[in-house]
Structure formats: C-alpha cells, structure tokens
Design a protein around this nucleic acid. Structure first.
Lengths: 160, 160
DNA sequence: ATTTGTGCAAATCGTTTGCATCTGA
DNA sequence: TCAGATGCAAACGATTTGCACAAAT
C-alpha cells in the first residue's frame, strides 16, 4: 500500500519537499500523488493539498465552502473557484461522489462505494448508511433505452 | 365531490365568473377553490389558476420556471416570484411535495402520496415509481433524538 | 516548450425578500 | 375595512466562466 515517497515522482525535484511541507505526513502527500496519478490527474500542489484534506480523515461529506475554509486556514491558499473546479474534477474521475439532498448546496462524499444516507435537515448533516444495513428491494425496469447507473436513498430525519 | 360552483363562494360576486373564464372548465375552477379552502388557503385568482394548471392533468413534476411559462402563456399573468411563493405555500399545506434530485433546480410533485422516482439525467425528467413496484427494506435506527419523516429514493437513469 | 491548472473577478442562475399596491372575506 | 396576496425589482447565495498568469511534464 504505502510506498517510499521518492518512488512517486521524479528525483531531484523540489516538488516532493514542497508537497511534504504542506501536509502533516509526507506519506500522506505521496499517497495522494499516487492516488491522483492513478485517477489520471496531474498531482499539482492544489490537488494534493485538497485531496489530503479530503481523504486523510476517513469518510467525509463536504460542501465547496467548507473545504475552501479548511484549506485557507490550514493549507495553501486556494480560491473558491478552484475548490469548485477541483471537486468536480475529482467527481468526474470517481474519487468523489456528489449527493443531492439539500437543493441549495452540493455535498461531495469521499465514500465512493455504494451506500446511502441519513440527512439531518436541521443540522445540514449527512451520515453514511452502509448497504449492509439497508437495501432496496426490487427495482422496476427502466424506460426503453435507459439503464440504471445509480440508486440514491436519502432517509430524512427531524428532531423528535 | 364536485359541487355547484355557486356554493363555493359568496353569491353576487363576479369572482366566480372571473375564475371560470380563466380555466377550460368552470368545474375545475370550483374544484380547485374547494381544494384550496380545504387546505386552509384563500382561493385567490392566482392560486386557482396555478392549481388548475398543476392538478388538472394528473401527476406532474414541475419547476417554478416551467409553471411560470405555462401560466403566462395560457392564463393570468403571474410574476415568477409569485410562482415560487405559491409553490412553497402549496408545499407547506401538503398539496405538493418537493423533490431534490438535481441540486440546481427544485422540482415540485403533484403526487403527494408516498412514492419514489426515476430521474432521467439527460432530459431532466422525473417519473413516478409507485411504492408497489419498489420498496425499501429494513431501515437502520436513526441517531438519538431524531426520527424519520421521509425516505426518498431516486433511481438515476442514463441512456444505454 | 507545450500543455494543463490556477486565481481572480465578473457573470450567471435559481431563488428569496422588501415594499408599495391590490384584493378577497 | 383590513388582513392577507401579489408584482416588481433588487438582493442573494451558490456555482460557473473568461482570461491572464503560473506550474507541471
């Protein structure tokens, strides 16, 4: 899994050092570089920094605004526009998936395996539901010419 | 069910005539007046006109923009803001329900019974799925202090 | 060197709000 | 009469885009 950081990029570059200084663990950065390369994205500083934030702490559900604040506080300064662009790029290559629950904001989920969600409306908070704990029964046949590519289940919660 | 139109509102009013002239069938208008009154909303011209459009043709999934165009073409001129307000009022009193599938637009569904949806992404189109044809299995217990008030299932479709 | 990404500000889109005016009970 | 609705325009928040600059291969 983990590999020596030098294996992930060209030697003699100060890219490695620059990257390492931006995140807590140099190993994390190199993991991210590997991950980005595997996804076909060039591992730029911004992408490495953002993916480190996103993927370091297990499953997360973030809005662009949330990630933007997090990044600007602790890491490289990024513009909000770039955060949006990056989140969409990550989504396109399958590193993230987008969850439509709120209408007003877009949530991005670092868990890209099949699963569902609780949505706590008054806290604007998402919680994963493993497909083990909840599965959808029979699904009707889609209209002609179309196929199912995803099934989203949102269990909406309110304070008792 | 249906009742004579004069029974629905004060006699001597030209409200009835005005309403009747705005929709194909005066009976439809009076049905709408009844429906609105039952929901605790005053049957104003705008509300009667919009509800006639919404509820005359069976189950529909509309955006504010769609209803706005429809109304302005065929009926009383309404402002887009009023369409939004009216859709929300209808939702609050349970005549409509709001479906969050697209993130960018809000859809309003005239079917307010429990059911699910196909969502055809490339056409931005919703199709009802009766709960008879699809049901969700066991649902995990919600976190403490919260209760489930709705479960949304969206089956996303793509062209084959 | 060439291609690809980034920052910024301005543009856009859907939606909401404030307020003066109108209308139904 | 008078609370409640409506229209309009302006305000708004989230997201996207255009373009000059910077960085990665």
């Amino acid at each position: 899994m983990k590999q020596s950081s030098s294996s992930a990029f060209r030697s003699g570059s100060d890219f490695e050092e620059a990257m390492a200084s931006r995140v807590r663990s140099p190993d994390l950065a190199s993991d991210m570089i590997t991950k980005l390369r595997a996804a076909g994205l060039r591992p730029t500083r911004t992408r490495v920094a953002l993916s480190s934030l996103l993927f370091a702490k297990g499953d997360r559900h973030v809005t662009a605004e949330m990630l933007f604040e997090e990044a600007n506080q602790a890491e490289v300064s990024v513009s909000l526009a770039t955060v949006y662009n990056t989140l969409h790029q990550f989504t396109e290559v399958g590193l993230l998936c987008q969850v439509a629950v709120d209408g007003s904001r877009a949530y991005f989920d670092t868990n890209n395996t099949k699963h569902h969600h609780f949505y706590i409306e008054d806290r604007h908070e998402l919680i994963d539901i493993s497909p083990t704990n909840m599965n959808v029964g029979k699904v009707p046949v889609p209209p002609d010419g179309y196929e199912i590519f995803r099934i989203d289940v949102v269990v909406r919660l309110r304070r008792k």
